[in-house]
Structures are given as structure tokens and as C-alpha cells.
Design a protein around this nucleic acid. Structure first.
Length: 549
RNA sequence: GCCCCUGUAGCUCAGCAGGAUAGAGCGCGAGAUUCCUAAUCUCGAGGUCGCAGGUUCGAAUCCUGCCAGGGGCGCCA
């Protein structure tokens, strides 16, 4: 927030004094050391290389122009030519008033300018329950959606259901075989079929729903089993996600692409452009022309369309028919080989490839008792998301999943996550929130009118820790911006930990509610500001803000 | 072999659109509660930023090569 203001001021001067470099990019940063000011810029150092003037000389020019700004308490030229700024602390006090006024809107931005963003995440095949890897994608996609919305984008969340294709047929056949087995038939269950116990539950249900299932023609029976399995598994997935506080705007069926003939239509478009050819009975897309390492099959010799073909049609629709400005896909890192071919297809359709952002989510390693657990849906070996949530709780699971960038692998230590203690960071942040709530209760008991908090005389806040907290609060919107532009919810996680830490220190050192009523009100006001910002941050992560702990 | 991600304190990780003397949490050691929630706080020990070059006034950050770990290279999804 202040950063943007300083940058704007500097740009103005740049425009008038160095018009040829009006578009120069430079940094406003928060120095590590306090004696380098609240903010500093390398502007003069960068300009030095471009103009041949000495950096400190250039800095002097800016200094003259900035002197009169009331935002600054002091400006200094330091070292090789840094300009260091000290902000007038009244500015920070004013900002607290802004927080108290804007409440849950504080920190929101309009950098999205209402642009429409489509975000697709999880999209797990309905072949089995969600496991913890899906959970990471779910938490990430949901938090990112909330953050982008807060930053001024119009966000649409979608789950793409792969409800046709080879895997679905294997799923149907798996259920059918289990149904046979249940009715006493001796069967051999192939290795590449779905092994999980849930298949038997679905088989049981199938026999209940269709008592004559086994006397039907096999193809028909498998189809019934398949559709029932998809429905039951999808219900389970939907249920898990709801419990995980993840809600979609739409669930999109792959099958519907075919029912509307869209796949054929879009592939024809590509064919008309000459990028489709036939070889060995299959249809190939010339993705190698668009940066992929080789060409890819869109329709197998068997006549069946590949998953890739559906995806081309789906994305064509996202951009051309549904007209989203951007689309974000969250995929497991094991799909990375897929990115080039999909982007290639977009290029072939004259769709700007940067409108699609694919975020690859790295693996989750589940650690239990120091042991690494491996997972495979096919083998029926995995830790289910619902199990993890039941053991650990939604707040802790989400917080931990969101504490890393999507491209870092994540070690999830179940025992640590379950601990309701200092080792578990989520409670550290929540505890700060609960503490403020408790303070307000205490104040009420002592006869304070809580409305007065909003009118407090903030000049009473002058302890270094108080100024420190005020500064931190003013950084919130900068964090939102970084988090939104970098698709990085973890930046909010770190910010909240820092803010909570400052508040806990402050709370331990100073009496918030004391003898001096004016001072107490000012401190309550500061505490309430912390609470609101923590609440806003946690809400963006989809983590609750408890009033009592 | 090729492609992507990762390598920073004992452990888990920030910092990486170059910037001034490398940070946090956990763990470890020592302490704090007659007082607003101790799920808190204070102090301490702990580092060749994987290795080697290069670019630069300046590199944990950018480039190249190498090493190590993970993932991917199907008419699978």
C-alpha cells in the first residue's frame, strides 16, 4: 500500500526529470536493517548505469523533490546510492483507522480489474475416493480462488469430471466382476482393475438396485455398473470437498463435450488448418510444430477419442465460447508432460497460450512415525482425505497444505499436525485471534463501550512494538498482491505467522487494558486491527478464526 | 538420454523480477504466570546458502556445467 504510493511518487519525478526513462523498472523494498529506513529504493543505482551520472547525484535530485511530502518523516541517501525512506508514523495510525472502517474488506484490491478467471482444480477421476494429494490441490485451488477474488478478479471454480474413456470402462468392469463374486461366482480379478474395497460396496449397491444385473447382457451390465460407480464415487468426492470447505461453481462433465459434438467440431477446426493427419489408423495432432517434443494421438485406431482430444475441446470452449480472460489449471506434477501439448493445441487454434496458466502441484509425502507412506489409487493404497481430515481437522490440514509453494514437495507429518500445541503453527495464529476476542470480552466486563475502540486517540500508540505492529498491518495489501500475482497462498501464511508473533510479544510485554482509559482504548483499537487482519487472512486460506480456544 | 521441480542451521522451510552484516519455526539448553487466555513470551548455542565457473560496483538470488533427491517421457488418465 505504502509501497505503491512511494513508487507512484518516484515515477512522477522520473517522468519529469528523466522522461526518456519514464518506464524504468525499479524496486521499492523493505530493508532488512532498521537503520536503512522503512523502505528503500535502488532507483538511482539502476539509473546510474543508464545515464552515466553518479548514483548519489541522481538520488540527490529525487531527494529534493520528495522533501515536501508529508508521508515521509526522513529521507536519506545511503551507501552506493540507495534512497532510504522513513515513514511518518501518523500515516500508520491513520491506516489503523482505515482497517477498523473497512473491516473484512481491508486489504482487498482491484488489480484484477474485474477480469474473468476460470480455475479448474482437483478434477480427480471418479475412480476412487480423494486422497491427500488431491487435498493439497483442493486447498490450493480454493485458497487461490478466494485470494484472486479479493484482489479484484471475477473467479469461476470448476471441477472437470472424466466420466468416459478407458478408465471408466475398467471401473465399470471392476464393479461388475465384484458383483459376480458377491453372488458366489468364482472369478479372477485382473491386476489392472481397481482393487479398493469401495468397489465391493458399489457392487453390493448395484445388485440391490438391479436385481437382474447378472442376467443382463455383459456390455449393458458393465455400463450400468460404470454409471452407478461414477455417481456414487462422485457423491463421495463432492461430500469430502464440502467437508473440506471447498465449493465449486460448476461440475463439468467430459461426456457432455461429446453429447454436444464439440470434440469433433473443434478437432475439425484444427484439421482445416492442416494440423491433423492420419497414421496407422489413428488421428494425430502435429503438436511438434508448436513446441511439443512429438506429435500426439487424438483418436486411437480403435476409433475412441483420447483424453487429450476432450481437453482440447474443453479448453477451446473455456476461451472461445465462454470467453474467460484467463484459465488456471492445477495439475499434479506427474502431468507436466501434458502441458506442452495442450498449449500447442491452443496455439494451433490461435489462442494466446499465456491465457492458460498450468500450476503443477508437487507431491505430498505423508510421514507417519517417521515413515514415508506411498500411494496408488489403482492398488488401493492411499490415505484418504476424509481420514486425514477426521484425524487432524480441516483448519490444520488446510493451513499445512497452504504453507508451501505449489512447486515444492510437501512433507506432511501427521503426528505434528494433530498436536494442539506450539509445534502446530495454525493454532499460533488462531490463538492470537482468540486472545483479542477475549480482550474485548474483558473490556466489556470492565465497563468499556466497545464502540469507543473505533474513536480511540491513536497518538497514544508510541511504543516501538506498537509502531512495529502498525507497520505490519499496513503491509497486508502488499502481501495480497504478491500472493495473487504469484499464485502463492503461502505468502499469506507466512505473513499471518509474523503478525501473530508480533501480537503475542506485544501482549506479553504490555498491559492492554490498564489504568489509563485513553491508552487502553488505543491499545484495544490496535488489537482489534490485528484481529481483523488475521481474520481476513485466515478467511482467504479457508481457515476458521475461533473466538475462544 | 531428454524435460520439469527441489537442494539455505540437527529437522521443516522463508528469503531468489540482484542490493547493504543470511532469517523463522521446531528440536536442544536456561528462564518468565499474585497481573487481560502459558496453545504465550524472554535469552542462548547452531550456517563452506549442494559443488565449480561466469555476468555485475554488488550473487543465496541471474547464466553455464556438474553432483544429489523426486516426478515425467504410452494409440494411459
Amino acid at each position: 500500500m505504502i509501497k505503491r504510493r512511494i513508487k507512484a511518487l518516484l515515477k512522477e519525478i522520473l517522468k519529469s526529470r528523466f522522461p526518456e526513462f519514464a518506464e524504468l523498472t525499479f524496486e521499492i523494498e523493505k530493508p532488512k536493517r532498521a537503520d536503512h529506513g522503512d523502505f528503500s529504493t535502488n532507483l538511482a543505482l539502476i539509473l546510474q548505469g543508464k545515464t552515466g551520472l553518479k548514483a548519489r547525484e541522481i538520488a540527490g535530485i529525487f531527494l529534493e523533490e520528495l522533501k515536501k511530502e508529508s508521508l515521509f518523516q526522513k529521507i536519506e541517501i545511503a551507501g552506493p546510492g540507495f534512497i532510504n525512506f522513513w515513514i511518518n508514523s501518523n500515516f500508520y495510525r491513520e491506516n489503523l483507522k482505515v482497517i477498523l472502517k473497512e473491516k473484512e474488506k481491508y486489504g482487498s484490491l482491484d488489480i484484477g480489474k474485474g477480469r474473468r478467471v476460470h480455475i479448474e482444480f482437483v478434477s480427480a477421476n471418479p475412480t476412487g475416493p480423494l486422497h491427500i494429494g488431491h487435498g493439497r490441490g483442493a486447498a490450493y485451488g480454493d485458497a487461490l480462488s478466494r485470494i484472486l477474488k479479493f484482489a479484484g478478479y471475477e473467479v469461476f471454480k470448476e471441477y472437470y469430471i472424466n466420466d468416459r474413456g478407458t478408465q471408466m470402462n475398467i471401473l465399470g468392469a471392476s464393479v461388475y466382476l465384484r458383483a459376480k463374486e458377491l453372488s458366489g461366482e468364482k472369478i479372477a480379478f485382473p491386476e489392472d482393475y481397481y482393487q479398493g474395497e469401495y468397489i465391493k460396496d458399489i457392487a453390493k449397491e448395484a445388485l440391490k438396485l438391479y436385481p437382474n444385473l447378472l442376467s443382463l447382457e455383459e456390455e449393458k451390465a458393465i455400463e450400468l455398473c460404470r454409471d452407478l460407480a461414477i455417481k456414487m464415487i462422485l457423491d463421495d468426492i463432492r461430500n469430502d470437498l464440502e467437508n473440506f470447505r471447498v465449493h465449486y461453481d460448476n461440475w463439468y462433465s467430459e461426456r457432455s463435450l461429446y453429447e454436444r459434438g464439440l470434440v469433433e467440431k473443434v478437432l475439425n477446426l484444427i484439421k482445416e488448418r492442416g494440423y491433423i493427419y492420419e497414421k496407422e489408423g489413428a488421428l494425430w495432432f502435429k503438436s511438434s510444430l508448436f513446441g511439443d517434443e512429438k506429435d500426439r494421438v487424438v483418436r486411437k485406431a480403435s476409433g475412441e477419442w483420447t483424453y487429450f482430444a476432450s481437453d482440447i475441446a474443453y479448453h477451446y470452449e473455456k476461451f472461445v465460447k465462454r470467453k474467460y480472460d484467463f484459465a488456471i489449471n492445477l495439475w499434479g506434477a506427474d502431468h507436466h508432460g501434458y502441458v506442452a501439448r495442450l498449449k500447442g493445441a491452443l496455439k494451433a487454434l490461435d489462442i494466446e497460450e499465456n491465457r492458460l496458466q498450468v500450476l503443477l502441484i508437487q507431491m505430498v509425502n505423508l510421514i507417519e512415525g517417521g515413515e514415508l507412506k506411498s500411494m496408488s489409487t489403482r492398488r488401493g493404497e492411499y490415505v484418504e482425505l476424509k481420514e486425514l481430515i477426521r484425524e487432524v481437522g480441516v483448519d490444520a490440514v488446510r493451513f499445512i497444505f497452504l504453507s508451501r509453494s505449489h512447486d515444492s514437495p510437501l512433507d506432511f507429518d501427521v503426528e505434528l499436525a494433530k498436536k494442539q500445541s506450539q509445534e502446530n503453527p495454525v493454532y499460533y495464529v488462531q490463538y492470537a485471534h482468540a486472545r483479542v476476542c477475549s480482550l474485548k470480552e474483558k473490556a466489556k466486563e470492565r465497563g468499556y463501550n466497545l464502540e469507543e475502540i473505533y474513536e480511540a486517540d491513536l497518538t497514544k500508540l508510541s511504543e516501538p512494538e506498537e509502531i512495529e505492529i502498525l507497520k505490519k498491518l499496513s503491509e497486508f495489501s502488499d502481501v495480497i498482491e504478491l500472493s495473487a500475482l504469484g499464485f502463492a497462498p503461502y505468502k499469506i501464511v507466512y505473513y499471518l505467522l509474523e503478525l501473530a508473533s508480533l501480537f503475542h510479544e506485544y501482549y506479553n510485554k504490555y498491559k492492554i487494558i490498564g489504568e489509563d482509559k485513553e491508552l487502553s482504548l488505543a491499545r484495544l483499537s490496535l488489537s482489534e486491527g490485528c484481529r481483523m487482519v488475521i481474520n481476513n487472512g485466515l478467511r482467504l486460506l479457508g481457515v476458521s478464526s475461533p473466538e475462544k480456544m
